[in-house]
Design a protein around this nucleic acid. Structure first.
Lengths: 343, 343
DNA sequence: ATTTAGCACTCATAACGACCGAGTGCTAAA
DNA sequence: TTTAGCACTCGGTCGTTATGAGTGCTAAAT
């Protein structure tokens, strides 16, 4: 139902608007060198595109602006991924040159570089810990009634939690317990720790330790909080550079969300593998009304461990940005798999 | 040289401007109920105050606005600290009710509460670690060539660092070394670790361990990074609520600085004890031109360990805010001393 | 000697109208 | 089917004109 020419016009309108942030009119289009037909023809096609909801007019006599539906169609069918240039590829690769073992640093740097390359806000949902396996559990007593529990995973991640000791437990009990746990739980994924603790370990404890229930619940608590992955940001304030965000109210909505982290987490956790593009209201979030979100997952081996996301205005440079996010996610997967997958 | 009436007028102008964010004129002042003289009199006094640089006019025929010098005088001589109301005291006290041992959580919560109470951006410079004493040092090997070093301090703080192992060291060497270090260094303040490592420990190592130099430098590295304290924020986007920050450029400057953390660190580290108020350009920072910064230090025992700061527009509600920061800093000192000072 | 009433003056802000121009839709000719 | 032509729309800009809150200054009142 849409002619090739109409699609071509749609594409050019969107490309143009993405570049200029200005509504585009039929005359200015007709003047472009790769357009051979007149402004009147374009007007007719534009009218049709508007009927179908791909573009809209901010007011009666202005040029056209892509609608969300327009962007959607563009992303799904029109856009051709821009090839990355040498500079971009090099910059991304530079993240992984020094063989740092600390995953968090790699992830943080990825977020920074991605935001630098795009001028949008980059968010990386850190490696999920639940698939990490316990490497070592340690309790360090602090004075009379407090202790810090430390958990080390096979990827070198360290989690710790301080708590008050229940009364009537003494150092030897704790030591015994730590020994038992280390003996039985090393290699167990964090996500299964809780269950194991209550199903297998509890019987052992009953045998060897007084006051096992208090200690156990304490450990369980220490072990539980690792469900939540961490978010890493780059270019948190980049939205301020976008001309369409001249209105403080809009800015506040977005910045607040970024600052709270929770909304962001809901947006990007649990996205499917591969590149995903959510445009404007598709994000089901009031603050994201005028923003788009590009996400891609990254893996270690075959295990999807985290997500890369890029947040910008709906008027995003999709063709370049999608290529970048795609490339980065594959690069990360490669590098991380290399580092951690052999074991 | 300034009459009492002139000072009174200055005070009212500033109070009024802080409340309304609008230039204040002689007529509106004269209508206030606690002012008995005419607008003409006020005009004369205003002219004098302007001569002396305490107030200024945005343009020829507008009301007056406090200058930095005016704010300075106000803060130093005119302001009377506002008594906190029950609600405010309760809110602050609530930070310390549950006896959490984790200092970081207390500090984070303080920043959040302070920003909530004030609608400005709160920053807390976390406890300096250099006075923390080593409680336990631990090395956990990760596979062949990497290991994570974990340092626990007497306040329950845990630092960790992953690194690649030098070649030709084996597990037993590491274990021996860890034992030596734990034996010799527990109770030593982190700030002295480096020195001790190179002066006392090195001789012991030479005796017991092959390849001690590589291992030593590795440890030194792991131990060194704790110089930098951490910053905790509350209400990072609160500056967006200020009417004088309607201009995106101004906002960007401030937000960028907040986001980078480094500039903030420079601003608030090393402030003297007690309440400090830096107004506008006094902060020697382009981004802070239109902002004021209130700082106060908090202590554990007699040891100053960190700083509380509040960042807002120069048109800040000084009287209330100074009381709040003062109260919070004392409350924190009290609570932390209670928790950690007995030892 | 102070204070105040009176008055001319200033200037940001809002309101108004004119006009421009980039844009549109529609019709009729190519 | 495409395009030239034309009337129409409507934001944006520019100058004009109030309006009003503010000022400084002078002279009268206290």
């Amino acid at each position: 139902m849409l002619t090739d020419r109409q699609l071509f016009i749609l594409q050019i309108i969107i490309d143009d608007f993405i570049r200029s942030a200005q509504p585009v009119g039929s005359r200015s289009l007709a003047e472009k060198k790769d357009i051979t037909y007149s402004s009147a023809t374009i007007r007719n096609d534009m009218a049709e595109l508007e009927n179908l909801g791909f573009i809209e007019k901010p007011h009666t006599s202005s040029g056209r602006v892509p609608s969300e539906k327009g962007y959607r169609y563009y992303v799904d069918h029109l856009l051709r991924p821009k090839k990355l240039n040498y500079q971009e590829v090099e910059t991304i690769n530079s993240i992984f040159v020094d063989r740092v073992y600390e995953l968090e640093k790699v992830v943080q740097k990825s977020a920074e570089i991605l935001s630098e390359l795009t001028n949008y806000t980059a968010i990386v949902l850190g490696p999920e810990l639940k698939d990490n396996k316990l490497k070592k559990l340690q309790i360090v007593p602090l004075g009379q009634d407090a202790a810090v529990a430390i958990i080390v995973t096979d990827t070198g991640h360290v989690e710790n939690r301080t708590f008050t000791l229940p009364e009537q437990v003494d150092a030897s009990d704790i030591e015994k317990m730590v020994n038992i746990l280390n003996e039985k739980l090393i290699g167990v994924p964090l996500s299964e720790l809780h269950d194991k603790l209550y199903k297998e370990i509890v019987v052992l404890l009953r045998r060897h330790i007084r006051n096992h229930d208090a200690l156990l619940s304490m450990f369980a608590e220490a072990v539980d909080l690792h469900a939540n992955e961490k978010l890493f940001f780059g270019g948190k304030t980049n939205i301020l550079n976008q001309p369409e965000f001249h209105d403080i109210e809009k800015i506040r909505l977005v910045m607040n969300m970024i600052d709270q982290e929770e909304g962001i987490y809901r947006l990007i956790s649990g996205v499917p593998a591969g590149i995903q593009v959510k445009i404007g209201k598709e994000n089901k979030n009031a603050a994201m009304q005028h923003c788009s979100l590009i996400t891609a997952s990254y893996s270690i081996g075959n295990e999807q461990v985290g997500t890369i996301a890029l947040l910008g205005p709906t008027r995003m440079e999709y063709s370049r940005v999608i290529s970048l996010v795609d490339f980065l996610s594959h690069d990360m997967t490669k590098a991380l798999t290399n580092l951690y997958h052999n074991g």
